[in-house]
Amino acid sequence: MQKRLSILVSGRVQGVGYRGYARLIANRYCVTGYASNEPDGRVSIIAEGDELALDQFVTDLYAKDEPLIEVQSIEVSELPYVGEFAHFEPHFGDFQKEMFVRSELALEYMREMLKLQKRSLKTQTDMLDALRDMKKESKKRREVLERMIEAIHSQG
């Protein structure tokens, strides 16, 4: 049975490639329609297709394996089926504005990545220092053991 759904997705879903992600998922399930950004930060989706395909589509819209996308909630309501779409497409707004928003977001992610990299390098340095200390301690113990073995052999 063919159905039409109106879907509102909330969370970190703008400026992170969510509309393109929705298109990939729609193509996987032969779902038609569109996705567009809303002024309130949500993404609005109109989707048409087979009932089973739409159920799977909505499930996959949670984007659980996507590192930049963070879906908090999905509101779904059924509409009368129209059959007006040939494919699924993301709708984009003003190109300059979209690029500016994405650039700003990319800079935020790069800052976070640099912070993580610095923490990681600090941890690696600490681990190397600990390994060097362990090596020195091991060398001292080996020298003590060698002297003990030498003393035992010289007495025997």
Rank of each mutant, 00 (worst) to 15 (best):
E98T: 13
R12C: 15
F100G: 00
L52G: 03
R119A: 08
Y29D: 07
L128C: 02
R4I: 03
P67I: 04
K136A: 12
D55Y: 14
L107I: 03
F92P: 02
I25G: 04
M113A: 15
I74F: 07
Y109C: 01
G17D: 06
I46P: 01
L107H: 07
K136H: 10
L54D: 04
L105E: 12
S44Y: 12
E89T: 15
K139A: 14
I46L: 13
G20S: 12
G83A: 09
E137N: 08
K64R: 15
K64V: 13
M134A: 10
V82N: 06
F92E: 11
F85V: 03
A35T: 06
E112S: 08
H91M: 14
L8S: 14
Q56D: 11
M99I: 09
G49S: 07
L128F: 09
A63V: 02
L24A: 13
S154G: 00
L114I: 09
M113C: 06
V82P: 03
A47R: 09
R4S: 09
G11V: 10
A47F: 11
L131W: 06
A130T: 05
S10G: 01
E143G: 06
S10R: 15
P90L: 02
R132Y: 00
V43L: 04
R102V: 11
Y34Q: 13
L68H: 07
K97F: 01
S6G: 11
M110D: 07
M113W: 05
Q155P: 01
D126I: 02
G83E: 06
D65E: 13
E84L: 13
V58K: 08
Q155W: 10
K64M: 11
V16G: 08
D65K: 12
A106P: 01
R12M: 15
Q72M: 10
F100D: 10
E51M: 07
D55R: 15
M148H: 04
I25S: 04
S10I: 02
A22D: 07
F95R: 13
Q155K: 14
V58F: 10
D65W: 05
I25C: 01
E104I: 11
E66S: 12
D50R: 05
E89V: 15
K64P: 01
L121R: 12
A106W: 05
L52I: 05
L79P: 03
D129W: 00
E112G: 11
D50W: 03
Q124S: 09
G41L: 11
D129L: 10
V31Y: 05
L52H: 08
